[in-house]
Amino acid sequence: MTAAWSGMMRLGELSQGPRTVVLEPDAEQRAQIARQIDVVSLPALRVELEVRPWLDGAEIIGRFQAQVEQTCGVTLEDFEQPLSGAFEVQVVPAGSPHAPDEDSEMELDLEAPDPPDVLAGDAIDLAAYVFEHLALEVDPFPRKPGVNFEFDAGPEDDSPFAVLKRLQDPKG
């Protein structure tokens, strides 16, 4: 994520308790986001975040509503569609006792919650987390509503073996 759109919050701001943050990028920022997530355009994006203290870091609970314009993979026509998503992320500062140990082997458990992200400093770029989860929600093979892909194989080509069999079998 580039610095074109950011929503920075310092961990110290949470000493007063949970914070509600609303992020709405302007038209220029949405255009840059659209290029980065490979959509035609991003006419609308509104994000509501609740950031609250969690251990010695923060927990970010976010919900976003967006309107994306994509190109249909069947008709090649551009169309708009709504996109929404929700996410929950925990972050801790570097050196936290709750940070995952980089030297130990990580055990893969698909049912376990993700380990917390480790911050480089004492600030959280909330927009970066939104960007990441927005990109994951974009359909990589968009199809305009109501459009069906109908495959027409065309005339059946003879395999080389079928041609050889006909040459050997005069009745074929």
Rank of each mutant, 00 (worst) to 15 (best):
V74C: 04
D152Y: 04
D157W: 10
L55G: 00
V130K: 05
A3M: 04
V47G: 04
G154M: 02
A31T: 09
Q81V: 15
E69K: 11
Y129E: 06
G154K: 05
A135D: 11
T71P: 10
V92S: 01
N148Q: 13
D139I: 03
L119G: 02
G85E: 01
I60E: 02
D109L: 09
L23I: 10
S6V: 06
H133F: 13
G146R: 03
E111M: 08
L164N: 07
A123N: 10
P115E: 09
K165V: 07
N148C: 00
E88D: 12
R52D: 00
M106L: 14
G57Q: 03
D109N: 10
M106I: 11
G12C: 02
F64W: 13
Q70N: 14
E77N: 12
V89C: 11
E48D: 13
G7S: 01
G154Y: 04
P142D: 06
S104Q: 12
L11Q: 04
G57N: 01
P113K: 05
E111L: 06
E88Q: 08
D117G: 01
A66E: 10
E102V: 11
S84P: 09
A153P: 00
D103M: 01
Q81L: 01
F161M: 13
A153D: 14
E111H: 02
F161E: 12
P140Q: 10
R10C: 09
P25I: 15
E80N: 05
V47C: 13
Q70F: 15
L55F: 05
Q67C: 13
F149E: 14
P18G: 08
G73H: 10
L126G: 09
F131N: 15
E24T: 13
P82A: 10
V51H: 04
E105A: 09
V130L: 14
G121E: 06
G62A: 14
F141A: 13
Q36W: 06
G95H: 01
I37D: 04
A58N: 02
V74F: 12
R35S: 11
I124W: 09
C72D: 12
I61K: 04
M106P: 02
W54H: 01
L164H: 03
P43D: 07
L134Q: 11
P170V: 14
P93Y: 10
P113Y: 13
G7N: 07
V92K: 00
L110I: 10
S41A: 08
G146E: 06
D152Q: 05
A94H: 02
A27R: 10
G7E: 10
A112H: 03
S159Q: 08
I37Y: 14
R10A: 08
K171D: 15
S84V: 07
Q70M: 15
D101R: 04
R30A: 09
Q36P: 14
F131A: 07
A44V: 03
D122H: 05
R63F: 03
M1W: 05
E111V: 05
P25Q: 13
D38R: 11
G121I: 01
E132H: 03
K165H: 03
Q32N: 11
P115T: 08
T20L: 02
P100I: 06
L83V: 15
P113R: 01
V22A: 06
Q16Y: 09
I61N: 08
A135I: 14
L55K: 08
G172Y: 00
